[in-house]
């Protein structure tokens, strides 16, 4: 019965871990992100281990010394780590340690610190305040004073807005450095259609996860417009599709995906959408926008050469649809 209890206990502790095994794959950026927390956690663990190790060492040392003395024939009465106080004879080491830690008067002597208070049979002792508790209280008050001086009096600690600005600037720099290290950056000025199977498959995955709810899995449209017809609201060439995905059309409910999809991913999903034109949809939405003539199905379109694209925002203004 006892054993079962413990096994169950351990199971509860470990169970949550099982369903999260899949996260291990993404650990790399996780470590990057939580450096400070990890270092702090490690510090705590290491300090606990150190304390325990030192304690064990101390005991080992004592034993060695004792053996040595015995070898040398020195007889010595055993000294205890914490000598027993009056009234503590026969009390175990840990009990004595605990009493000392709390500066308590041992139970056998408690009549000495009993007050004369009695309420419905309840008596009160008057033990001294546990020193570690009292010092903890003092330290927390000191912490409060230092904290307030730092953040509110001297203003040396950052306000939350300053923290935010610093975080954003740092992130911007990091991202820039990272993107620069990749070399060729994809943006609306240079994006090209990719017909590689890997890219199209990746594009399909992104599409199914993010776009299908509004545009339907087969591109037939729903809340958002139909991709299978020749009509496009914001241009049907690669740069236009890419741009619409990247910046969105906030006034019409199309989200800007820039923050959520990397340029490569936006290229993949744009390519997938590009290829949808001409497919047959199960429930096609009525055409929206204007017929968009693509120069060529496979070659990149140059936005400059395409007048429809340039004016397309303006053209939309009269579009009563959506």
């Amino acid at each position: 019965m006892k054993k079962l209890k413990y096994i169950l206990l351990i199971l509860i502790m470990v169970l949550p871990g099982l369903s999260f095994g899949q996260e291990a794959a993404e650990q790399q950026s996780f470590f990057e992100q939580y450096k400070i927390e990890i270092v702090l956690g490690l510090t705590v663990v290491i300090s606990i281990v150190t304390v325990v190790a030192m304690y064990v060492l101390l005991i080992a040392l004592k034993m060695v010394l004792k053996l040595k003395r015995a070898e040398m024939g020195i007889e010595e009465e055993e000294k205890e780590l914490i000598p027993a106080k009056e009234g503590e004879e026969g009390v175990g080491f840990w009990r004595r340690f605990w009493n000392r830690l709390n500066d308590s008067v041992p139970v056998s002597k408690e009549h000495e610190i009993a007050t004369d208070h009695e309420y419905d049979g309840i008596r009160e002792l008057d033990n001294r305040l546990p020193p570690w508790w009292l010092w903890g209280f003092y330290i927390s008050i000191l912490f409060a004073v230092v904290y307030l001086i730092n953040y509110e009096v001297l203003g040396t600690g950052p306000t939350q807005d300053e923290e935010f600005q610093a975080e954003m600037m740092q992130a911007e720099e990091d991202v820039k450095t990272y993107l620069a290290s990749l070399g060729d950056l994809i943006d609306e000025s240079n994006v090209t259609l990719s017909t590689e199977t890997a890219d199209i498959n990746a594009g399909k995955a992104i599409y199914d996860a993010n776009c299908a709810v509004c545009h339907a899995a087969d591109g037939g449209g729903g809340v958002g417009p139909n991709f299978t017809d020749k009509y496009w609201l914001h241009g049907g060439d690669m740069p236009s599709i890419f741009k619409t995905i990247k910046y969105g059309v906030p006034s019409k409910g199309m989200i800007a995906w820039e923050a959520q999809l990397s340029p490569k991913k936006m290229q993949q999903v744009a390519s997938y959408i590009y290829m949808m034109e001409g497919n047959t949809a199960a429930n096609p939405k009525e055409p929206q926008g204007e017929v968009f003539e693509r120069n060529d199905g496979t070659v990149e379109d140059n936005p400059e050469s395409n007048p429809d694209f340039v004016d397309d925002e303006a053209a939309l203004e009269d579009d009563e649809c959506c």
Binding site: S29, F30, Q33, A171, D174, Q260
Partner: peptide, 17 residues
């Protein structure tokens, strides 16, 4: 909480949904 805060190196959210 960790999932909310996790970024890809390119500055996009890992769990954007």
């Amino acid at each position: 909480s960790l999932m909310w805060k996790q970024f890809n190196p390119d500055g996009t959210l890992v769990y954007s949904n």
